[in-house]
Amino acid sequence: MNVDDAELIVRAQAGDTEAFGMLVTRHMRQAYFSAVGLVGSREDALDLSQEAFARAFHARKTIDPARPFYAWYYTILRRLCFNWLRDRRSRRERLQQGGWWLEEVSLAAMDAPDRDLERREAHRRIAGALAKLPDAEREALVLKEFEGLKYREIAARMGTPIGTVMSRLYSARAHLAKALEEQ
């Protein structure tokens, strides 16, 4: 049975834990990948995304069923991730563990060997540069490139005007371009 988020929220608010479990199962992948993009560590992203769901469960009475669940959940997740980043002195080192959280899409395998090598090198540099970006720039870039959101959706998620999203994207890409050009 395909139940929409609003109905699951109403049921969860009435104390139906199974309904909340369905909400979690429906959004867990997006939640995990959002967290990975923000903190850059698989274990921590898992833990933080699950912790955010646990907090969402305790605050479920405050959810407006008429509004998208994930946007509401993301505000909790985002705050948790930024607090985590702020509290970890070693975050740069963790993020710089090599961008293992990204992989090439399969079409790269169809390239000629020299082109493939070039692409792999570009990906290595991009992953390294992505890890070094300021948090706000990395978040904007991840939401655009890996979650495929539109500017207005990113602006809503980040609580900033569209112009700020675009300038953060430009700044992030300028950093990545510099990394690609470095020899």
């Binding site: 479990g21 979690v24 898992l46 990204l102 899409v105």
Partner: peptide, 24 residues
């Protein structure tokens, strides 16, 4: 062009199987 040929690395299937239980 470079970023558009990159994607999230998938975790193992067990990660998703255990996910809700961990939240619970």
């Amino acid at each position: 062009e470079a970023t558009s040929t990159m994607a999230w690395r998938e975790p193992t299937a067990e990660t998703w199987d255990r996910y809700w239980m961990s939240v619970y």
